[in-house]
Simulated assay, not measured.
Amino acid sequence: MADKVLDNNQVTIVGVVDSEFVYSHEVFGEGFYVVEVIVQRLSNMVDRIPLMISERLIDVTQNYIGRTLEAHGQFRSYNKHEEGRNRLVLSVFVRDVEVLDEEPENVKPNSIFLDGYICKQPVYRMTPLGREIADLLLAVNRPYGKSDYLPCICWGRNARFAGKFEVGTHIHLWGRIQSRTYQKRIEGDQVERRTAYEISVSKIECIE
């Protein structure tokens, strides 16, 4: 059963390290650290993806900036309480990581597969330029009765298809993790630059 739950959330990231390791938390004496990697898109844009890595998988005291990492794991969420409200924080929980001398062949640098359930009514809309978009929130089961809540975005025919889903619909989807920056007003005229993450869906199936 545990293996099945692990199989429903699979991520592969190959990217260039762009930060030092920052301490996050400790569980039963095991320290976890966050490091950011840059992943190139086909459009020549980049995504900045945060990796949550155990100190038992890699030497977190070293500086790997500029080095290439290949990481396999799961896309996870947790609620962070700040400014009197909860904010959804997303990162890739790494189960296996390797430092590479060169980029591997035949490996997609940014890929994800999810098996989960629609937990919020999808929002279908059309941009001013006529592009179809649907926003989904997917609940994906995790071991020990927990779940991850992952925002996804569909385009074109996939958006039209997904826009008709009901809450509770069981789906499989494939895609990539993308990042986008936005500005949030925090106090008075102060504006803070933040990064949001979502899954850009390339393929989606409804499971009966």
Rank of each mutant, 00 (worst) to 15 (best):
V14Q: 03
V27D: 15
V22W: 03
D189V: 11
K146P: 02
V191C: 05
Y144T: 13
K108F: 04
D7W: 05
L138A: 03
W174I: 07
I112N: 03
R193T: 15
E208M: 11
P143G: 06
N63F: 03
A159K: 01
N8F: 03
Q178H: 06
G156P: 00
I58F: 02
I199D: 08
C154L: 14
W155V: 01
D59M: 09
E132C: 04
D115Q: 09
S111Y: 02
S202I: 10
G116R: 03
A139H: 04
S43N: 14
Q10N: 15
N9L: 02
I13H: 04
S77Q: 12
Y117G: 04
R125P: 00
L150F: 08
R193C: 08
I58H: 01
L129N: 14
Y64K: 06
V46H: 09
R142G: 06
Y124M: 05
H81A: 08
V39K: 01
M1Y: 13
V97A: 03
N141K: 15
K4H: 09
E26S: 15
P143F: 07
V201K: 01
G163F: 02
S24R: 13
E198Q: 12
F75M: 11
E103G: 00
D47R: 02
L90P: 08
R160A: 09
I112M: 06
H170R: 13
S24P: 07
E55G: 15
L173Q: 03
I171Y: 02
T68P: 00
Q74T: 14
R76S: 12
I53E: 06
V201P: 00
M1S: 15
F93A: 15
